[in-house]
Computed example of a mutant assay.
Amino acid sequence: MKKIIVNIACLLGIIVAISSCKKNDYFVGGDLHNPKINMTTYDWMKSNKYGVFDTVLMLIDKAGVKDKINAQGITFFAPTDYDVYNYVQARTKQVQKVDPKKMWTVDSIMKYELGRFADSIDMYITKEQLTNDRLIAAGKKYKNNKGGNFIISYEETRDPALGYNENSTVIPRVVLFTYLYQTIGDVFDVKSIVPPVGSRTLVQTSNAQTTTGVVHVLSNSHVLFYYR
């Protein structure tokens, strides 16, 4: 991990009226005021001034999958460097069960797991452009590029940390990405899905529409590739 975010407020589309952000940066709930971005998905991630995708992009480059996230007409649920950090921490705990002195690092990913990275990045990509205006509160199932299923929903929240204010008549909404470990039917309650069926991840910045596709940025608490 090369960089730590000093001021994360302007990255988060779910943050309300933070004085350090430009007034027209984001709507409550993750909708960009101006969602149209005149650059590719890769270049938009690279341009982030806090460097929150630096490690992710380095791995994308090393694995040779830049074309996957820049493919025309796709939606990419982008992990951040924090999600990579969470992964190496989880892997370290696992390998230390065998050798307490052993560490798993980003260098370990580059040495041993670039093939896995190149294949697994497809779980975050779908061939449909899922802009927020297409999303529903109850959620809908979609297929990712690995052939697995996920649900994306656009839900109301009453969490003050996500912009809810009891004095306001406007209830903010947030996007959630629910990765499915198991097959489920077409009738489901998305809010009740938990492991081992699936795992729900908050989208912290949504609806970025680049010249190549749509980007939704996953929460910094996510663990890369849902490693368990």
Score class of each variant (00 low, 15 high):
residue 168 S to A: 02
residue 83 D to T: 12
residue 167 N to V: 00
residue 118 A to W: 01
residue 211 T to K: 14
residue 189 D to S: 04
residue 210 T to F: 10
residue 216 H to C: 08
residue 186 D to Q: 04
residue 171 I to E: 02
residue 98 V to R: 08
residue 85 Y to S: 12
residue 211 T to A: 13
residue 1 M to G: 13
residue 210 T to M: 15
residue 10 C to I: 06
residue 148 G to H: 09
residue 118 A to H: 00
residue 96 Q to P: 12
residue 40 T to G: 10
residue 46 K to H: 13
residue 214 V to Q: 13
residue 174 V to K: 02
residue 126 T to G: 00
residue 53 F to N: 01
residue 42 Y to K: 09
residue 74 I to D: 08
residue 217 V to S: 11
residue 153 S to Y: 05
residue 58 M to F: 13
residue 226 Y to R: 12
residue 142 Y to C: 00
residue 65 V to Q: 06
residue 204 Q to K: 10
residue 96 Q to L: 11
residue 67 D to I: 00
residue 163 G to Y: 06
residue 53 F to P: 01
residue 7 N to S: 15
residue 26 Y to A: 15
residue 24 N to E: 12
residue 202 L to E: 02
residue 66 K to A: 12
residue 18 I to C: 15
residue 131 T to D: 05
residue 65 V to E: 03
residue 90 A to F: 07
residue 101 K to G: 15
residue 72 Q to H: 14
residue 72 Q to V: 11
residue 155 E to D: 02
residue 48 N to K: 05
residue 33 H to K: 15
residue 173 R to C: 01
residue 48 N to L: 00
residue 117 F to R: 03
residue 119 D to S: 11
residue 173 R to H: 03
residue 175 V to F: 00
residue 110 M to G: 00
residue 5 I to D: 12
residue 107 D to K: 08
residue 8 I to W: 09
residue 30 G to E: 06
residue 201 T to I: 14
residue 157 T to W: 00
residue 40 T to H: 11
residue 173 R to M: 05
residue 68 K to D: 07
residue 200 R to D: 05
residue 215 V to M: 09
residue 224 L to M: 14
residue 106 V to P: 13
residue 14 I to T: 09
residue 1 M to L: 10
residue 13 G to A: 00
residue 77 F to Y: 02
residue 41 T to P: 04
residue 161 A to R: 08
residue 89 Q to L: 09
residue 24 N to T: 13
